[in-house]
Design a binder for these strands. Sequence first.
DNA 1: ATCAAAAAATGACCGCGGTCAATAAAAAAT
DNA 2: ATTTTTTATTGACCGCGGTCATTTTTTGAT
Lengths: 195, 195
Amino acid sequence: MQKTIQKRTLKTRARLFTAAEAVIEKNGYEALRVDEVVQAAGVAKGTFFAHFRDKDELMEILIGQKLVACFDQVEKGPMPKTALEIIDALEPIHSFMTSERYVFDLIIRYSGATAIAEIGPIAMCFERYVRMTAVWLESAEVRGDVSADLLAEGVQAFALQSMSLKYCALHESQSFRDRLEVYLNAWLNPIVQKT
Amino acid sequence: MQKTIQKRTLKTRARLFTAAEAVIEKNGYEALRVDEVVQAAGVAKGTFFAHFRDKDELMEILIGQKLVACFDQVEKGPMPKTALEIIDALEPIHSFMTSERYVFDLIIRYSGATAIAEIGPIAMCFERYVRMTAVWLESAEVRGDVSADLLAEGVQAFALQSMSLKYCALHESQSFRDRLEVYLNAWLNPIVQKT
DNA sequence: ATCAAAAAATGACCGCGGTCAATAAAAAAT
DNA sequence: ATTTTTTATTGACCGCGGTCATTTTTTGAT
């Protein structure tokens, strides 16, 4: 069973990516139309779907790339030690995730791997989010009664909750940052009187 | 500015609902097609969109109805006192929310009110989730350093996180219930040594 | 009862994502 | 160099959600 990939294929694929990025640059993610991309790339519509399962797959790749860049940037910075520092450290990631409603929805939808075989780029970022945060929490000034991994998953849960509420008119009085700060203080530094 | 609603309107609307429910009963939510509904209801396609902004609006209403029924059932039961009892009490709600991938995605997408003016049925359920849980937590055996409202929002965040992971192949080893139990124990009953 | 105005229903039509049998181009076999 | 086989590309076509000018029905005024 051979499967030689022609170099023509790579060229076509590259042109599709370039075209898609240009289209997004102009009008954002939501407004992207497959027809516009293939026209800009100078290929037929069918070719698009020979390279990507569906429009979402292209989107997942492109958004995943940007997300990875955000993570790289965040990991270059210094290790945060407190809840507030963690929030600030994660800011570039959260900022991109909520840059467009369409982007946020797509990220949520693809945050889980459908099959173990194929973990998509966004699902990988969600894994990375927890791993990275867990490392921070390992040596941060936080509660020690539960594992850093568990704490990290909680941080993710609260960050997602805060981002969701950002799109909710009922809660727009409080800013994303303030809300997440309240959550994380309560999650990472509970003050409990022993009974 | 008058706007008399004819009783014909209500009849048509009712027929659309009945037809939609029948269609869903047969093949589930995801497979519903507007064409199938209007045919079953014996009306033209345009009529559908005179009654509902789009297909999602109908779905939101139907799924919202079911959700409300779940809440009513849950509120009939006894007040849970512990993390575990809370998980069990909420089970009917979580169960319906994850009954179909399509249903879960739609619920997430409409969990926030787009505009304050029109709070959709699902957004109302999300409010109700927190209100109800907060009342429970008011008199439950849980930490007292933060408000019951905040604790309730956390419960919601962790429940959503657990549900999301249910659809993630990378985390399917742990069951929804076990995962949520770990989260809620850490959230509601932290054990911290005073420094 | 008659007629004008408001409300509701209609269905041909459009946009856009996605398919697939036919065709072209490249690689391998001769 | 020629044929065969594999791989890529094409574009007409389809499904389905959603629109809108036109028609039908209802209502309220005379």
